[in-house]
Design a protein around this nucleic acid. Structure first.
Length: 299
DNA sequence: AGCAGAGCCCTATCATGCTA
DNA sequence: TAGCATGATAGGGCTCTGCT
């Protein structure tokens, strides 16, 4: 057994890592580095422009909490979902106008002095988001409402979610948190800072899946799949348990049960609710759900 | 802390098989 | 045939997981 007494250059370390990586009892984790890719000559037709985004906030409630850090990075991907070019990485801190809870500082590393007098550059941030073909985040249902509230001009943009729009388990992954997924892709990083989370998200998107294509391709395909929202407006009270059992969720604000169904399942679901819930005497309301409103707080 | 979805555990119920 | 043990299945409730 040889003891390593001094660490060498990056090249030496890489050579050692490759050696260790070949042993069946060891696996090497490499520190994630920012993704920088350039197109040789402009952007080719058929290439999609995306905007990877992450926010750090004072808490989980979009109604009462505020954004304290916003990070985003544009990227361009080919039809197979491979990232062919990346834009500049942007991130801003913002003063929420009230003290940051110690729990949030412990989690994000962001304290009151870090954000004092700081503010997001609204016009630049908004234009980077609205100029992209879609926005992508890990758990878009969290980021989207905060972004739309802080930057109202970005409302209605298409969102892709790498947490819910990818079936990680069937692709052979354990857990779904960003650091855990990256680790299974052979990388580690300092999580829970917006800018490093965005860099991690880019690596995640570019990762090939066993089923073919990349994470980005799978997520975009799932996000753009046609779907319908059925609103059981005016459903008889005694059918509430039936609706709940069928997967409908109670919308306390609008006071009706709702369920999102894939396009292919719409006819069957519509027939079920008309017969079982309305007894053939009324009909539910329904609307198309696209990636533009799926994660929005207004949906 | 809030929310949605997935997964797990416990219990109830029913069918089946064995034994006295 | 009655009584008991065992296994499969379904449903309810609880816990965990993601995000800050």
């Amino acid at each position: 057994m040889t003891e390593v007494v001094a660490l060498g250059s990056t090249a030496t370390m890489e050579a050692m890592a490759s050696l260790v990586d070949r042993h069946r009892d060891f696996r090497v984790l490499r520190r994630m580095t920012p993704m920088r890719r350039n197109l040789a000559r402009g952007v080719r037709p058929g290439v999609l422009a995306g905007c990877a985004i992450d926010v750090e906030t004072t808490g989980l409630d979009v109604g009462s909490d505020a954004v304290i850090e916003l990070a985003l990075q544009r990227f361009w991907a080919d039809p197979d979902g491979r990232i062919v070019a990346t834009g500049r990485s942007h991130h801003w801190l913002e003063d929420p106008g009230r003290p940051i809870e110690p729990e949030i500082t412990r989690l994000t590393g962001i304290a009151d002095p870090d954000v004092a007098g700081r503010r997001i550059m609204d016009p630049l941030a908004a234009s980077l988001i609205t100029d992209a073909d879609f926005v992508v985040a890990h758990n878009a249902s969290f980021d989207c409402p905060f972004v739309e509230k802080r930057l109202p001009d970005t409302a209605g943009r298409p969102w892709v979610c790498t947490l819910r729009d990818v079936d990680w388990k069937s692709q052979g992954f354990e857990g779904r948190s960003l650091p855990q997924l990256l680790m299974q892709m052979g990388m580690f990083y300092d999580a829970h800072r917006a800018s490093t989370d965005v860099a991690a998200l880019l690596h995640l998107l570019d990762h090939p899946l066993p089923s073919g294509g990349t994470v980005l391709k799978a997520a975009v395909e799932a996000a753009t799949r046609p779907a319908w929202m059925i609103d059981a407006v005016g459903a008889p009270f005694e059918t509430k348990d039936l609706l709940k059992a069928r997967g409908y969720r109670w919308n306390a604000e609008k006071r009706h049960w709702s369920k999102e169904v894939p396009g292919a399942a719409f006819d069957e679901e519509y027939e079920w609710i008309v017969v079982q819930v309305y007894g053939g005497r009324a009909k539910p309301r329904f609307r198309s759900v696209t990636w533009c409103e799926r994660h929005s707080a207004d949906a």
